[in-house]
Nucleic acid binder design. Structure first.
Lengths: 195, 195, 195, 195
DNA sequence: GGCTAAGCGAGACGGTACGTCTAGTCTTGGG
DNA sequence: CCCAAGACTAGACGTACCGTCTCGCTTAGCC
């Protein structure tokens, strides 16, 4: 936790309005022009903000766009409820398929690509996007094991890689469509491997 | 073949020495400084070559490095022979695990990352690196089906994604080690799904 | 006088301590780093004062430094007494020579240079530094005329320019040393022209 | 001398067209907007040139404008011919008065002001603008001495300071008009001191 | 003794220019 | 027509400073 002493900090407090404006501008501009063509000047200008205000908060455009992405669309792609627990995974995989092939698929590819050149970005992607979803998947798998829907003694990490690896593979390599059919087939195969 | 028409071209022929020097320089520099920090000037200077000479042959640094990569390490990671055909996949997956976690893993990550911003690079990666390996895998799977080592009616594309997706996933996302244990586990699960 | 109307102002009165601290900081920092490298942030920080407190009192760093300069060294370089009135000018020119070639010569150059870009600063320099000295010189010259030490019908403005122009010329252009010898020679020539 | 070996230098030679365009742009823009408001981007844009091309040749805008000034108007303000040699100085002083009070007077003030903050600039001003004129003046004075128009044993440096100091003093301090009357009066007084 | 207006230190704000860097192209003389 | 060298245009980068604004907090004089 950041200590209370920082609450006592003096001087003008950072503007939340500027913060939000920057995130909105980042998403808007990255959608309009793509990540590479996007510039910090663009973001600042579109947000009606000085460049320093952006750099005070984020070290580079990758970090801005990552934060914007996570703030905006993090809350989506939840695991829907379902009486039969492993079906929750299937449902979420269908959502993910739709998500990856839609307008944000390109954005994820971009962030993932950029992460290869920026360790902090990679860490943020892992910790704030990937891990929460892996954790949820793991809990569901554990429950399914307890319900005897799946084998005991699953290697959970490998199992999750098997379920989701193919999605990111197709997203990045473009070897085929990411649609409901694909999601269902991967789900079918992976579950077959675990049952 | 395009060679004959080039024989007719007038003027000084392109120097193969320069070509090789550029590829060597690209590999050397990309290893030393990383892809992002690498510049075309670096490559040209290290190769003792004018920048024009590089641009005459490749449109940007991604393309140079991709070519250097494929020329250097394309021949490796073959599918070893094995009497039981699906074991050839297992063997190759072990090789791939070693390869991905070694010094060239970083390079692949980089090229893959850069591909997200450069369609031509992505295409080159798909066509010259990925597809030959997928094709080989497919032929082996088809042979295994014929030998009744695997089920009939396999969705080959999905099957290959299931086998290799987890490798690229771990390579890019860094969610775990890529070692022989991992390779064997993914192989075991995927084959179990197909048998 | 404006003082009475200010007495009526309500609220917290301006802190004289802050005022003095700013002037001291300005002199200290401008000596240490030079005028160009000096920033308002520097001055405020060194004075232990908010930037607002500086800007409430002066419009820019030129004005601060000018005030600091005049407050600090205004009282110096007086015209010494002498029974033969024109000798007072000679004495003062020697003082000025010492002053211009000493540590404050650089500061005057700087303020004069900055004045070329700032009308208010130029005005302040003229009205608060130059004119009092020109006025004093004029009175001495008039007295000398009355005493028949000099010709009647002197063009006083031109005469003063002749006396002091060479000092500022050497100060700014650096064409030679500004020492007692120089002062005496200029004095000798100028007086010769007026006698 | 810069050695001949530089003539052998390889690569594309610096473009004289760009060089001239930059100097023209600098003069045009500095006249239009003033020195402070002028920016390197302006100069480059107006010259149709990349910023690097400007920075490759000059370290800052002061240096560009100084070079532009000297290239453009250096050739002017010569010493006219006259049968009585010291009259040549009078004539030149009238030209200088016209020059200082005209459109380039402001530019000289500016360069002189900027020189207070930039040693190289000050040096350029001294060596390339001031010294040639001082040298010419000195030669004329020496000739006048030989012709017995002036006293023997003149301190030439002080004499030149006496002649020209008042011009720069009025230019910089604005204590009065710089017109023919002023020029003639300063000339009359200074020559009276030397005769 | 409480009210209220202005000043206080701190530091974030919008803006602008800086000087550096890289990309990809062009221009030399020479092979 | 290719080569090495290096200058070219274009434009993003991240830093610095400007002069203003916004906090929570004094510090006075006036009721």
């Amino acid at each position: 936790m950041i200590s209370e002493s920082q609450k006592l900090s003096r001087g003008r407090p950072r503007s939340d309005k500027a913060h939000q404006a920057i995130l909105r501008a980042a998403i808007k501009e990255v959608s309009r022009r793509g990540f590479r063509a996007l510039t910090m000047d663009d973001i600042a200008a579109r947000a009606g903000v000085g460049k320093m205000t952006v750099y005070r908060r984020w070290p580079n455009k990758g970090a801005v766009v990552m934060d914007a992405f996570l703030a905006l669309i993090g809350p989506e792609t939840q695991f829907p409820e379902h009486p039969q627990v492993i079906q929750r995974i299937k449902m979420q995989m269908r959502l993910q398929a739709k998500f990856f092939s839609g307008k944000y698929g390109q954005l994820i590819r971009t962030l993932l690509g950029e992460s290869q050149f920026d360790m902090e970005l990679a860490e943020a992607f892992r910790d704030r996007w990937l891990q929460p979803r892996r954790q949820m998947t793991r809990e569901i798998l554990e429950l399914a094991v307890k319900n005897q829907e799946l084998l005991r003694d699953i290697n959970y990490e490998a199992a999750i890689d098997l379920l989701y690896g193919p999605f990111y593979y197709r997203l990045q390599l473009g070897t085929g469509a990411i649609d409901q059919e694909f999601a269902d087939e991967i789900f079918r195969l992976a579950i077959r491997a675990l049952k």
